[in-house]
């Protein structure tokens, strides 16, 4: 951490040389104040990955994710009405996911009152009332047996004007709210890059349980000159339907009716819709074209386990199409009772 190193040098010089001490302190202060400030209220811009971040992905849309077979199986059996269970209703998103939804957040700094050294950068994420502390004082991460939280435990360091944050101890949740899971072994690296009133946020998530390669995501936020008042997220869990305690909504093998919807609606080969690391690289376009033109057998789409279903009108052979609807997700989410989280 640049600031700490500078101030540490200052303390060493102070032992024997008063003049050097003054010089070192000046250098340390200069170093600290040279760092760009991230302080302010920031609101999301959703031109990037809009469908994924605002209305929400279609069920069966696993595109763009370097997931493994375990994640596919989890997502195939995922019934959105599971979030209507009492203990799930008020769960927020985890740190690798929360910036992907509609979000405004506030950043401020905590400084040592005596030295004015930056101890931590703090965040309050208004959409789900989550707090983050990004420690910059060089402290270690907690031991393995420490609790995990939605936001995890974060430490940061400056690389020039880029704040890089490492987060561990994150709870299990989702990379994509249509059922793509993230495990509690997930770790996250973030980069905060400010350009005037814009803040670029890059996330690199690693999950040895559900990802075969790191998942890289990016978002843009804009500084709010007039912060709005939407900073609270009241959530009161309540069971509004009678159900046994043992009931955990999920689909057995072959019973999920929604797995083909996305691929059929957009005319995308099923194999392509089911994600995987290889499908996230530009070279995959060749494979995709081959699939669309009925190419080699190995590239031909396979059918995921699921009941046969009448094809939805094919809106075109390319990856583009009309705006997708959220109706299916909402319909599924409310099948077993209303969930406050399924928006």
């Amino acid at each position: 951490m640049k600031n700490t190193q500078a101030s540490s040098s200052g303390r060493v010089f102070c032992i024997g040389h008063f003049a050097s001490c003054i010089l070192a302190l000046i250098c340390a202060a200069s170093s600290a104040s040279a760092q760009i400030s991230l302080v302010g209220d920031w609101a999301g811009r959703y031109q990037e990955d809009f469908q994924d971040r605002v209305p929400g992905p279609d069920l069966g849309d696993y595109t763009g994710l370097p997931i493994n077979e375990a994640a596919r199986k989890y997502a195939d059996s995922w019934d959105p009405s599971r979030v209507s269970l009492l203990e799930h209703q008020c769960e927020p998103y985890v740190s690798p996911h929360i910036y992907r939804g509609p979000l405004q957040f506030r950043i401020w700094e905590e400084k040592d009152p005596n030295t004015q050294e930056l101890i931590a950068i703090k965040q309050y994420l208004g959409t789900y009332q989550q707090w983050r502390t990004i420690w910059l004082d060089g402290r270690p991460h907690p031991p393995e047996y420490a609790p995990h939280t939605w936001m995890g435990f974060s430490t940061g360091e400056w690389h020039g004007d880029v704040l890089t944050v490492n987060t561990t101890h994150i709870k299990a949740e989702f990379f994509r709210r249509s059922g793509i899971p993230s495990s509690d072994r997930t770790t996250l690296v973030e980069h905060y890059i400010r350009h005037g009133n814009l803040l670029s946020h890059v996330m690199i998530a690693t999950d040895p349980v559900y990802l075969t390669e790191p998942l890289i995501m990016s978002e843009e936020f804009v500084l709010m000159e007039r912060g709005n008042q939407n900073w609270l997220y009241n959530c009161e869990y309540a069971m509004e339907i009678d159900r046994p305690k043992n009931e955990v909504p999920h689909f057995l093998e072959g019973a999920n009716p929604s797995l083909k919807e996305y691929a059929e609606r957009y005319g995308i080969p099923l194999d392509a819709a089911r994600g995987g690391a290889e499908s996230t690289y530009p070279e995959y376009m060749t494979t995709l074209r081959s699939m669309l033109s009925g190419g080699p057998d190995k590239a031909r789409p396979t059918t995921p386990p699921g009941p046969s279903r009448e094809a939805v009108t094919n809106v075109g052979p390319t990856l583009s199409g009309p705006p997708r609807r959220r109706a299916d997700l909402v319909r599924s989410a409310t099948r077993g009772g209303w969930s406050r989280r399924a928006w």
């Binding site: 927020p92 509690d184 869990y237």
Partner: peptide, 22 residues
């Protein structure tokens, strides 16, 4: 009160400290 986190802590037979969400 902070959205399904903390509160009652659960010590498992083996492993890390957990809460209701875990």
């Amino acid at each position: 009160k902070f959205l399904q986190e903390g509160g009652t802590y659960i010590i498992p037979g083996h492993g890390r400290i957990a809460d209701e969400a875990d």
